[in-house]
Amino acid sequence: MSDEPDKSRPMIELRDVNKWFGDFHVLRDINLTVRLGERVVVCGPSGSGKSTMIRCINRLEAHQEGSIIVDGTELNDDLRRIEAVRREVGMVFQSFNLFPHMTVMENLVLGPTLVQRMSAREAEERAMALLARVKIPEQARKFPGQLSGGQQQRVAIARALMMKPKVMLFDEPTSALDPEMISEVLDAMVELAAEGMTMMVVTHEMGFARQVADLMVFMDDGEIIETAAPDAFFASPKSQRTKLFLSQILSH
């Protein structure tokens, strides 16, 4: 292991990725590279394929054409490759998807103890450290149903971090939250970004995007329309569709 992380190393590569739902062409010739430590924010109107794209990266959806390479492992039908990629990639969902029949602590230690064979004690210590980091250590023994939406999403972030992922995927992490709880989740994500985590975030939170993104990706109708650094993206979008989208979500 070298001390200096190699900033040019690609963590996620999508090359000419195409996908159909039935006859519907949901992803069209997607090309995108996310490098180590890079934070990419994906935005676009609903139905533009941004969730589908991010879900292809840990094979929750299968692409039909092109190639997806995650930290050197190309995804195909091989179950061992899929499992290898999933061990390296953490994911946070719009609807949290915590396991409701388990306590917060059980939610956190499940993956590491089963998948990584971590000892129960080590896993619990790590869980408590992560819960402290997302500022809810006192909720460890509660069930998800007893927590607020913002707290649940922070547990979900901690759960994904338990596996020591190299990449974190966020699929609209604040869309299901009441407005007053959005910032507590975004704060946890900003902190994660500050620590150098490689992140890919589908979100409409443009304030968050301005603050942490290295690269903005705008998708519409299954295509990547524009990629740019945030300053250029917000100040002078090149495409007409990007301008329209930004005017719609930033107008109030």
Partner: peptide, 12 residues
């Protein structure tokens, strides 16, 4: 979503 979350954590 439960199946997806379990998959994302890497469970068989």
């Amino acid at each position: 979503g439960q199946t997806e979350a379990a998959n994302a954590v890497g469970l068989t």
